[in-house]
Design a binder for these strands. Structure first.
Lengths: 194, 194
DNA sequence: GTCTATACATCGATAGAC
DNA sequence: GTCTATCGATGTATAGAC
């Protein structure tokens, strides 16, 4: 039991409490292992009542997707960035990596497609795009003006995150190379424009 | 209908035919969308009869995992490698990338965990490790003697594959940078040993 | 809003006849 | 080996009482 749903709370707070419980269950049983019956049980709520908050299971996943991306966007926006653009890149990417690796279920839902048939709604996806835009901003400020170089850096970071999560969860075997690789990519743009 | 199971064939051949049909269905409906009923229907077989060939759905996934890795290992072993070690690295990694991107269902099953609760058996995983060992071999021949550098290159390749598959399936937006990035990594080992 | 109860679909898996 | 029949779980959705 995670905790009974507080009926005296506002609808907004109840919805948030449901999402929190869903994150806990997704962490315990996997994102795809989340069931409405199980979620309702943890909240001491009947399964049909969940439909008062989410019109379908996909809508619940969509709310989780949006919730996770909002967490990430908030984290990135609250960073105190160094004035040095290159150090700012490292701070932002490090925060991104740590966020992604802090919660396995969240990582899967936000950065992969663990639910067959589930595609985020345009509104939710817009939040994910705002996150990406934040990364592109700091990269451009650091002189990465070629979109191809942005692509390569994003892919490098994604590769580190996935390798870390898949092969050494909780460790630093891959993530410890982030700063060095950032320098490597920043020092070697596609067209050596010097 | 993919094709009736040939009852006069050997058990081995029948098992292989089931796996072939499973790949087709996984490609059509997604790895997680594969169902025993659907598979049996395509083979004109009853669903419980599949249990004569695989003791569980997980065992079927395990056989697919082993099958896909055997395909990849065979592909890598049959490559004609250039004598130049660096060019050999590029040929092997390029073959790896192309194999991964040639079949979306296979990519997901071999390189991710799309099925909650499914973990490859030690026997099947050994084949995947043999694939990895092949990559490590050519990298070492090209002078990559630091395991950390091997990790970074593998993660870079994985990042390119995932970005390509997720954001530009069928295209070359990320994979076109493979050779350049291989050079970048090979030219910049972790400890600049010059 | 929340509940009980229910309907209908899917799925993996098993029992037991042949 | 193959089949039919079945079980218990799931998700989706609805009806209707309170």
């Amino acid at each position: 039991m995670i905790g009974k749903l507080d009926r005296s709370a506002s609808r907004e707070d109840r919805t948030a409490a449901i999402l929190d419980a869903a994150w806990v269950l997704a962490g315990r049983d996997g994102v795809a292992g989340l069931t409405l019956r199980g979620l309702a049980r943890e909240l001491d709520l009947s399964q049909p009542s969940l439909y008062e908050y989410f019109e379908s299971k996909h809508a619940l996943y969509d709310a989780l997707f949006a919730d996770g991306n909002r967490q990430l966007l908030g984290r990135l926006e609250n960073l105190r960035l160094p004035t040095d653009p290159r150090r700012a890149v490292k701070v932002v990417l490090r925060a991104f990596v740590e966020f992604a690796l802090a919660d396995e279920a969240r990582r899967q839902l936000l950065f992969h497609r663990p639910i067959p048939g589930f595609v985020p709604s345009p509104e939710s996806y817009a939040i994910a795009e705002a996150v990406l835009a934040r990364g592109v901003d700091v990269l451009e400020a650091a002189g990465v003006d070629d979109p191809a170089d942005v692509d390569c850096i994003i892919a490098m970071v994604a590769g580190l995150i996935d390798s870390q999560a898949s092969n050494d969860p909780g460790g630093t075997r891959w993530t410890r190379h982030l700063d060095r690789l950032v320098d490597l990519y920043l020092d070697n743009p596609r067209k050596d424009a010097r």
